[in-house]
């Protein structure tokens, strides 16, 4: 994950762009972006969930997967190459896996609901929605932890601080000359 990282990010962006184009060209489904509520003005309904996903469900799932990978790759890009140790990459891979797990639970929970019409609840929300809401929030928490706890190891080490102060001194000297 050194100089090649930007190519990985570029590839992910290209794939996502390709997926969006494929979705735009897919057979349209009436009301796929929501339709007006039959009785209450200003409110929209989603209608038949299966029908809305029939042509684009797999593409949307891939888009979602790539987006989560992009988030992790961009976070890695923000860490200097020399600090991207095996431990760090392993940790970030774990973060990506946690995100993908939450994604899978959410998508499969939604699919299950569409097939059976029944759902359990977790902390006030239907299971699939609870995975979306709490899962999406929580799956990025490892990024916050590594940033805060690992700040002096991966983001801005004591040596970095010294180097930056040296750079500032050099810059001051240049200006004085």
């Amino acid at each position: 994950m050194g100089k090649n990282l930007i190519y990985v990010i570029f590839a992910i962006c290209l794939l996502m762009a390709g997926i969006v184009i494929a979705i735009i060209m897919a057979e349209p489904v009436a009301g796929s972006g929501g339709v007006a509520h039959p009785e209450i003005s200003g409110m929209q309904v989603g209608g038949d969930g299966q029908a809305r996903l029939v042509h684009i469900g797999n593409l949307a799932f891939m888009f979602h997967t790539l987006l989560l990978l992009l988030i992790v790759c961009l976070s890695i890009l923000g860490v200097s190459e020399r600090y991207r140790s095996k431990d760090f990459i392993l940790y970030m891979s774990g973060t990506a896996l946690l995100s993908l797990f939450c994604l899978w639970m959410m998508w499969s929970g939604h699919q299950q609901f569409m097939e059976t019409g029944t759902t359990g609840y977790f902390m006030g929300f239907p299971i699939a929605t609870a995975w979306q809401m709490y899962g999406t929030w929580i799956s990025a928490i490892p990024l916050i932890i590594i940033y805060s706890v690992g700040f002096r190891k991966y983001i801005f080490t004591e040596q970095d601080e010294k180097d930056f102060n040296e750079l500032l001194d050099d810059q001051k000297k240049k200006l004085e000359q």
Binding site: G34, Q44, V45, G46, G49, A60, M106, H110, T129
Partner: peptide, 14 residues
């Protein structure tokens, strides 16, 4: 309307 309370809401997945 079940879809509006499911993960992608009334506006849909994309």
């Amino acid at each position: 309307d079940s879809e509006s309370m499911m993960p992608f809401g009334a506006a849909g997945v994309m």
